[in-house]
Simulated assay, not measured.
Amino acid sequence: MSIDRAVLVFAGFMILLSLLLTYFVHPGFVWFTAFIGVNMIQSAFTGFCPAATIFRKLGLRPGTAF
Rank of each mutant, 00 (worst) to 15 (best):
F13L: 12
I41F: 15
F13T: 14
F10L: 04
D4N: 13
F55Q: 10
F55K: 10
I15R: 13
G47I: 07
A6R: 11
L16Y: 07
Y23K: 13
R56K: 14
Q42I: 13
G63W: 08
T33L: 11
P27K: 09
C49Q: 13
L19C: 05
G63L: 08
K57Y: 10
P62R: 04
R56L: 06
G47V: 06
F24P: 01
F29I: 02
R56F: 08
W31C: 00
V38Q: 02
V38T: 14
V30P: 00
M14F: 05
R56W: 08
V38Y: 14
A52M: 10
K57L: 13
V30A: 07
A52T: 07
H26W: 02
A52Q: 11
F55E: 10
C49E: 13
L19S: 01
Y23G: 01
G37E: 13
L60D: 01
I15N: 05
L58M: 15
A65C: 08
I41L: 15
I36Q: 10
A34K: 15
F29Y: 13
I15G: 02
L17Y: 04
L19Y: 01
F32E: 01
A6L: 09
I36N: 12
T33V: 04
H26V: 00
H26Y: 01
A52K: 15
M14L: 07
G63Q: 09
N39W: 08
W31I: 03
N39Q: 09
Y23N: 10
F55D: 11
V7I: 08
G12D: 03
A11R: 14
A65F: 10
A52W: 11
P27D: 02
A44T: 11
S2L: 05
V9K: 10
F48N: 03
L21S: 06
F10T: 05
S43Y: 04
G63F: 09
F32Q: 02
Q42A: 11
A34T: 15
R5L: 06
G12W: 01
R61Y: 04
L19V: 06
V7N: 04
V7Y: 02
G37F: 15
F48W: 08
L60M: 06
L58E: 10
M14E: 05
M40Q: 14
G37H: 15
I41M: 15
D4Y: 08
F10Y: 09
A11Y: 09
T33I: 01
